[in-house]
Design a protein around this nucleic acid. Sequence first.
RNA 1: GCGUCGGUGGUAGAGUGGUCAAUUACAUCAGACUGUAAAUCUGACGCCUUCGGGCUACGCAGGUUCAAAUCCUGCCCGGCGCA
Length: 394
Amino acid sequence: MKFSIEKKLEGTLARAGTIETKNGVIQTPAFVTVGTKATVKALTAEQIRSLGAQVVLANTYHLYLQPGADIVEKAGGFGKFMDWHGPTMTDSGGFQAFSLGAAFGTAVSKVASADAPVEDVSPTAGQLASVTDEGVTFKSHIDGSIHLFTPESSMEAQWSLGADMIFAFDECTSPTAPYEYQKKSLARTYKWAKRCLARHNELDIKNGQALFGVVQGGRHQDLREEAARTIGSLPFDGFGIGGSFTKDDIASAVGWVNKLLPEDKPRHLLGIGEPRDLFDAVEVGCDLFDCIAPTRMGRHGTLYTKDGRLNIRNAQFMTDFNPIEKDCTCYTCSHHSRAYLTHLFRADEMTAATLASVHNLHFILRLVERMRETILDGSFMSFKQVFCNRYYKQ
RNA sequence: GCGUCGGUGGUAGAGUGGUCAAUUACAUCAGACUGUAAAUCUGACGCCUUCGGGCUACGCAGGUUCAAAUCCUGCCCGGCGCA
């Protein structure tokens, strides 16, 4: 993997560049399409290609459980398995330490509101994951079987899955976890980072896979900066910025980190993808983002438009024969009306999920492409302002 | 015509004297979703409300009872059986 910066935007940390992988070039900033189980839900590989997606990210935990990393390896890696021939990434399974652990059965999500209370993090009954210094013990959500993920085993699984870029195994902490826990977890994630590097270097002698270290630290400036310095000093090929944020200050928290991370390596903001968050992240120097939002929102009937989100199931759209967006060039908008989409959703037709995912992914992919274009021509900040004023107007 | 079973909120269908404005599902109306336990989840869903409660409701009309969707009588309507 080779990263190069084409242009930096004056007065900000934003940059436009390219990442060259053996499966193709990514023009950054770039939105990474999420295909957790070696499929972008509701879409074929052909559809992913025609949307102009540049890179697809799959999940180690999910593919390890089903069908098994060995099978994916035999298939030639998850990209080949799913007929995606462009650049690929895998997440380490670290996020599942959070989503199946501390967040299990709760309303806590990755991004918290500013006034979210700090809560105790002691394990609750029914959780499917628990964390120790050795690794994370998972109880499979599929069949209840017990599995230990360690930094080493995550590297091994990701080696089998065969992505171009992979992530170190980390602990994604809850936004409601107290400072002391965040600090303790950070120390652990740092130790794990070194174990990941060691195992990765044994497995991948020719350095065919790029390994990204993950910066955690919750919402705390001192912890974020410490993580950026310590993880940033290790010989990773790039960096992921993970963990929890407060809705209102993703930009500042990510900014603390990116000011300290090595400038010449790509930075991937993990799991972030709402329009404003993408603008903020690009402005403070992120190059890659993955997010499930376009596809999950789409499946649930929420569609992106330049005037904000709309819920296509709402009664008002039943007789609206206009496209979702008049000037949208996606397949869905050029062939179908809002009324048709509403009908498909209400009738529980599978095609609804496909058409909505196509539109939402097109919207977000194109949005990040335009961010890149406006970094190159210098108009990024005004583009951000114009877009957000319209998208978030009441 | 006789006999018999049954008529419950938009629909299906529970409930068979008080804890019933009435289980549940679907439909409807909204909302949530940010490294995917997610084609998922949440709320509302008779009318009014100062959110304490008030009012009208379980085919229709009477009746019994402190109390009726629930028991009794008559009527109307429907299924089935026999003529």
